[in-house]
Write a protein that binds this DNA or RNA. Sequence first.
DNA 1: ACCTGAACACCGTTCAAGT
DNA 2: ACCTGAACACCGTTCAAGT
Lengths: 247, 247
Amino acid sequence: MVSATVSTTGSGAADGSARTASADGRSAPLSRQAVIDHALALADVDGPAAVSIRRIAQDFGVTPMALYWHVKNKDELLAAMGDRILDTIDLPDRKPASGLEELRGLLAVLVDALHRHPGCTALAQQRVLACDSGRQLAERALDILRSNGFGVRQSADLSRAALQTSIMLVSGRPGAETATPQDERAAVLAGKRAALVGLPADRFPHLVECADALTDCDDEAAYYGAGIDLYLAGVTALQQCQAAAAR
Amino acid sequence: MVSATVSTTGSGAADGSARTASADGRSAPLSRQAVIDHALALADVDGPAAVSIRRIAQDFGVTPMALYWHVKNKDELLAAMGDRILDTIDLPDRKPASGLEELRGLLAVLVDALHRHPGCTALAQQRVLACDSGRQLAERALDILRSNGFGVRQSADLSRAALQTSIMLVSGRPGAETATPQDERAAVLAGKRAALVGLPADRFPHLVECADALTDCDDEAAYYGAGIDLYLAGVTALQQCQAAAAR
DNA sequence: ACCTGAACACCGTTCAAGT
DNA sequence: ACCTGAACACCGTTCAAGT
């Protein structure tokens, strides 16, 4: 285990080449960024529940209290993880001519950013209105909605729905299993599928029929695209409905 | 503190009238149902993080290990909490003539059930395909979608979206703050609103404008109704779009 | 059938102390 | 500036033992 990113055995400081918490080579120095990155990696591999101060310290070959120099406490670490996810978003250029269609690109970049750490969507969600990159995202969504005829209340609710749609698409993707450690995911998923297939066909005909579709997402891009389409179709219908009521 | 439901001071067995963990009168006997109910109450009042085996035991005036007679372990307790939420749903009658509109009633009862324990939506979500009442709900959603012309894949994805839309409406409602203990919610919310209002108006004009709408939901029924409408508009548009492509 | 006592392996966190 | 040691108040859980 010379340069393991996230070792399941998790005895980071056993041998001489300790501090092998990062991917590139060995001996990643302890730093705020390194701690946050490793926490995200931990969440990806072993599930968000595996993120603990003590575990991170162990993986860096350092004492738990060492982390408190780089991070205020665990809550602040979790917030920083959410911020980091949102920071990777680079907002598409504004193109006011395209109407509500412009929302599509916005949701796409958000989904993309969330998809890199699917077990941490909740952390990102909590930071949308709290960190700068999240606020830029929300501001952009509101801008598009406001300039397409929606009022304050409706723009607020629809922008919320946009962000939450993205989050639910990623965290609720069939077969995501973000809470389960990576190496158990296949087994857990197979179990769930088997449970659905084995259901009494007279009571749950559709669950049996859809068992595969409910537990696996063969085409991620199509899945996300369809989810974004659904939201957009709803918003567009709402806009037309209101335009009709106005005249 | 004779018959407090969830006492913040939390010394359940201090006086003689211990075991006052339930609402009606005093001395609720320890039982599986009582444990689950109290766990839900705890989550509602002090946030889901406050649900612990030791805290529940304390509120019942009993030793932590006593709970393990009624509940296998904490994970099983959390699952039972989710089941309990879904069990309160009573499914509306089928009315095949109404087309996709029938989904509206389904989402409404789900939103209603979730809204009673808004901090526990994630627990319910994880149990939808795992417990009987959740499966009935999913089966019904699939039934409506399948009998309105959607294929297996699309019905699976749209039924997921339906459930997740409900969950996001409840847990993401402006001003919900389900993670914060009840008595801090007002203060936390005021802080968030103030942070938005105080944002630089040149960079975030819409966030400033929408600060109130983003942090408060003056009309819950209207909010939930509009959210369900949005989903339904999307699904209906999708249906028409496909019908057009088919001919 | 239902509960307790003692014990274990985990948490996050503080505070004084080291270099 | 950056890290450690010892200590505290929490967790969930097991297991043998009580009634």
